[in-house]
Design a protein around this nucleic acid. Sequence first.
DNA 1: AATGTTTTTTAGATCGATCTAATTTTTAGA
DNA 2: TCTAAAAATTAGATCGATCTAAAAAACATT
Lengths: 346, 346
Amino acid sequence: MSNQPKKNVSKKRITLIDVAKDAEVSRATASLVLRGSSLVSSATRDRVHASMKKLGYVYNRAAASLRAQSSHAIGLAVTDITNPFFAELVISIEARMDEKNYSVLMMNTSEDLDKQERFLQSMHGYQADGLLLCPAPGTSQDTIEQLKLWQLPCVLIARHVPDTDYDYVGADNIAGTTMAVEHLLSIGHQRIAFLGGSAQSSARQERLTGYKKTLQGNNIEFDPSLTVESPVSRDGGFAAVKELLQLSAPPTAAICYNDVVAFGAMLGLQSESRQPGVDFGIVGFDNIADAALVRPALSSISIPPAQIGEAAARLLLARIGDPAMPVQRIILQPELVIRNSCGFHR
Amino acid sequence: MSNQPKKNVSKKRITLIDVAKDAEVSRATASLVLRGSSLVSSATRDRVHASMKKLGYVYNRAAASLRAQSSHAIGLAVTDITNPFFAELVISIEARMDEKNYSVLMMNTSEDLDKQERFLQSMHGYQADGLLLCPAPGTSQDTIEQLKLWQLPCVLIARHVPDTDYDYVGADNIAGTTMAVEHLLSIGHQRIAFLGGSAQSSARQERLTGYKKTLQGNNIEFDPSLTVESPVSRDGGFAAVKELLQLSAPPTAAICYNDVVAFGAMLGLQSESRQPGVDFGIVGFDNIADAALVRPALSSISIPPAQIGEAAARLLLARIGDPAMPVQRIILQPELVIRNSCGFHR
DNA sequence: AATGTTTTTTAGATCGATCTAATTTTTAGA
DNA sequence: TCTAAAAATTAGATCGATCTAAAAAACATT
């Protein structure tokens, strides 16, 4: 019995060998066809393609990755996918990579440094061809430098890591808050707060720099009590604005770390019977789709995620193609979109 | 010159062989340690672990996948990650899978059947251990059945595929719209529309069924003109509600396919100088975080994405563990969260 | 000390594609 | 027709882990 050829072997996987046999070529030739090489004649190519279709061949990437030391996949880590800014970013990156036949392995780090570290390890293990990383605040230089040891190309998105020279794509945060402060000043606000975000985030540092500089440029002294940190969430914004309202001399307006925080701040104001856009000015950052929807509609500094994603994807592909290419930093210019949340009717 | 040992070989990858050599054991033993096998003595285990750390060993998953015909990765396809419902779903799935040391390969299909098909192929190519799939509307039976051929376990999320028997996790859509209709009737609405979504979506079909049944149960005739399709987006909802308002006998309330559509509908109403919650009732579906934030706050049928994700992940892991296990369908009960968008002050 | 068990370790084959370094075939040129 | 060059094809080694089946070591039992 047991000497009989096994009957219950449900079905072996179709491999290149099967295809090659069927098309009467060598494994090597079949492999060339697979990769669209111009070395192979069109007659053979067609024959192999026909066999592949006939047998239902499916490429085994694990085998290819092992041999070629490259997976045709890239890793993408964002800190918070529930933030529409990142959701849009992810979509644009995926679309672009898909076009180039790259797979995208995505992870949400939730700003957790350990999780991020595991992600990097895992990407090395998967032989990812490159990484798009929105680093969690507090990411160390060492963390990033190990990627060089692994020769794993990486483009940073939206946030820097101090003391590293990596490709980077982001928005001009300083210009963003500069515009926001100037607008708020122009409509009569004098005490303007900067609300939310984590102090370790480079994006926040830059936004804060623009804020401080512009205040100083307008002869307004920077008041540290008007700058509060918070988790990057609605709840964070909610709590932070309440804190501000407790001050003996509370602000009349706030520039928020981003729109999500701004939404929370608006709720916080309402819970204290203040009306954003009437007796308090709010400006967000990112200009996500919801900014136009909430009431009052949120004024926001627009940094189009699709463009950032697009640029980052393109840059990473270029970097993968030429690891020796000089480091690039692409800074996109933001725009201030004024809606109804800044108003200050004295 | 060229006979010299190559000096510029930057650094070979550290493999199990290196570790084994350093720890003075065989490759096989080192592999066992890697997988936490109980076959190996604790003394050897420690020695191997030490060598791994010392040499900076990183697991090569491609090699492991090839040999073991399993990648310890699962595929996750959702239709629209910019929808916070799916964003939350993704997070909960990722968290759970991460816990079990599975990687998640995510794709956004944008409801594109071709893209979805490529995703499935790609997952087979990557030797994914399983799939979590929110099928795009119009997904064919064949598409799904090929997964069986590939012996690729799959759990469907939130939407069915007709005539298939796959594991499934979703909400009781019929119960959801039943509650919504009953609530709207109870506060005096008589002409209630069903707004948005794609007719091919099983989720919509179920929601529509609940809607129709409940109307009939309350002796209200179903009026087909009150049911409109739309893309699942804000813009879709915006256009759809305007269409409804054009009717000679327009509705006084609408149950929306989901919250995103509902937000668009609210904007559409406002653009026609109607006030949702005052002269028109709106109910959404999903109860995403923004529902509480918009003004008026949106009443919505709550189906917690985290719970669905959690359940789906658990089910998939069980299925991977035991492919012969009977098919399971997990239906979670929704809740109606009443806020300020239904009101109808005659 | 001899034997049987259990625990621990291992050699060698293997997964399925790609790479290298040829070889074979075709085309071009004289 | 012959040779050189170009185009097309291929055999065999290889990537780095896991699996199988068996051997070696450690431990009991008589």
